[in-house]
Amino acid sequence: MTTVLVADDDRDIRELVAFKLQAAGFTVLTAADGDDALAQVLQHRPDLAVLDVMMPGRSGRQVLQEVRGHEEVGATRVILLTAKAQESDVESGFSLGADDYVVKPFSPRELLSRVQAVLARSTS
């Protein structure tokens, strides 16, 4: 079964995304801050992580950088989720190695489609 980590400091968003992914058949892990998100990636090695950019502790960008620098989990797929929609923010996210970038507010259905698309690209 495919495992997805959802890391967001907003409990409502975290629970909404987790619910949508679970309903689609994914195993879901959750984290409320960047430090926990990194620990979960290292411990559980999810197939994909959805990371809020602005979280307490490590930011989603910092977690992404650390994941990409880790030999064992460096290939983990990452979608950044953020309210930062400036072109420079999007470029920065992709330059750090994000597989996709979703801007808040977002449609849970669209996020599910993006998760599925990123995972499909990683298996082909």
Rank of each mutant, 00 (worst) to 15 (best):
A24H: 08
G25L: 03
G25D: 08
G25Y: 07
T27N: 10
T27P: 01
V28F: 00
L29C: 07
L29Q: 04
T30G: 09
T30A: 10
A32K: 13
D33N: 15
G34E: 03
D35V: 14
D35F: 02
A37M: 10
L38Q: 03
L38M: 08
A39S: 15
A39H: 10
A39G: 08
Q40D: 12
L42T: 11
Q43P: 00
Q43V: 12
H44R: 14
R45A: 15
P46Q: 04
L48T: 00
L48M: 07
L48A: 02
V50H: 06
L51V: 08
L51T: 04
L51E: 06
D52H: 05
V53P: 02
M54W: 03
P56N: 03
R58N: 06
R61I: 09
Q62R: 11
V63G: 02
V63T: 08
L64F: 00
L64I: 08
Q65N: 12
E66N: 06
E66H: 12
V67P: 01
V67W: 00
R68D: 13
G69W: 08
H70Q: 14
H70F: 04
E71F: 11
V73S: 06
T76A: 04
R77A: 15
R77V: 07
V78S: 01
V78R: 04
I79K: 00
I79C: 02
I79R: 00
L80H: 06
L80C: 08
T82Q: 01
T82Y: 03
A83Q: 10
A83R: 11
K84Y: 09
K84W: 03
A85M: 09
Q86N: 13
V90L: 12
V90E: 04
E91Y: 11
S92K: 09
S92F: 14
S92M: 13
S92H: 15
G93D: 10
F94Y: 15
S95R: 15
S95I: 05
G97A: 09
G97D: 11
G97M: 07
A98P: 02
A98T: 03
A98E: 03
D99G: 14
D99Q: 13
D99C: 13
D99M: 10
D100I: 11
V102E: 07
V103G: 01
K104A: 03
K104L: 04
P105N: 09
P108Q: 04
R109P: 00
E110T: 14
L111K: 05
L112Q: 10
R114W: 05
Q116S: 12
